[in-house]
Amino acid sequence: MALNQKKSVRIPAGLVLVVLCLISIALMTIWVREGVTGPLHTVRSGFGLVTAPLEQLGAFVSTPLRSASTSIDNMTASPETLDELMQQNEELEAAAIRLEEYRQENERLSQLLELREVYGLESVGARIISRSTDSWNQMITINKGSALGLAIGMPVMSPNGLIGQIESVSLYSSTVRLITDERSGVACFLQASRAEGIVTGSVEGLLYLRFIGLDVEVKPGDAIITSGAGGVYPKGIPLGEVASVEFLSSDVSQTIIVKPQTRVAIFEEVLVLTGSESEIQPNPDAIRDDENRLTQKEA
């Protein structure tokens, strides 16, 4: 046998697949079992440090995408008329847009400041830099992170009401799980009857108020506010109002569809509650405990 003759070893593709699947399953198991300070969560936070500037770039890039349809409309106008008018109005339009932008931003920031004063909340203002990068989670990314004291579990609000809770933080950005996500749950009560329940999100993006007994009178338009139970969200923050009520005779509780107070899609700035008179203590498991308590109560 020649000395330089090499025997090539071909690895079966099936074996490669099995190994990669096992690695994936191991990663998933670690992810589910480890806490929010576990190694994989830390790696993701580090990854967030890299992706945050890209997401910010995305927010910048998306502006021309949104106005693309307007540009297409303009292209169909008569060239002479369009040239003349556009030349005359270009500067004025740009100035008007800038002024309107400043006015709207000023208005939004004033609302956020008012909100902070009304609730006596310690908070940090942040800008939304990105929305969900996949279909399975309803999230937003904000441009403030642990460098400014933000931590996992802190509630996030818009000028109108609660929108979610911080799920992961990196140094300069944070990811917020919205209340409309199906894995969110907020302890709430109906303002009129003071009946307590849990508001949960859903796949279709609707909010449901659950665990309200059949004996409680619920009317469309009734306000729903946070109860403060569990210590995750401070008490008294508006969340929405009753849109409709559904129940069958066999049900033990009513299913209430909630119209959210805030449509996240229209907001660009938010407030992260870092503390309040009621001492917000991030406790992601508390809602689940409350849910169990209410289930037992119903039973």
């Binding site: 690695i23 994936s24 191991a26 990663l27 998933m28």
Partner: peptide
């Protein structure tokens, strides 16, 4: 597998989920 892992890290799902699916 690698692209799935990167996707997992860039999004909010469980790490390892999309890497398994994409592999």
């Amino acid at each position: 597998f690698v692209l799935g892992l990167v996707f997992d890290l860039a999004t909010s799902g469980p790490v390892g989920g999309m890497s398994l699916v994409m592999a």
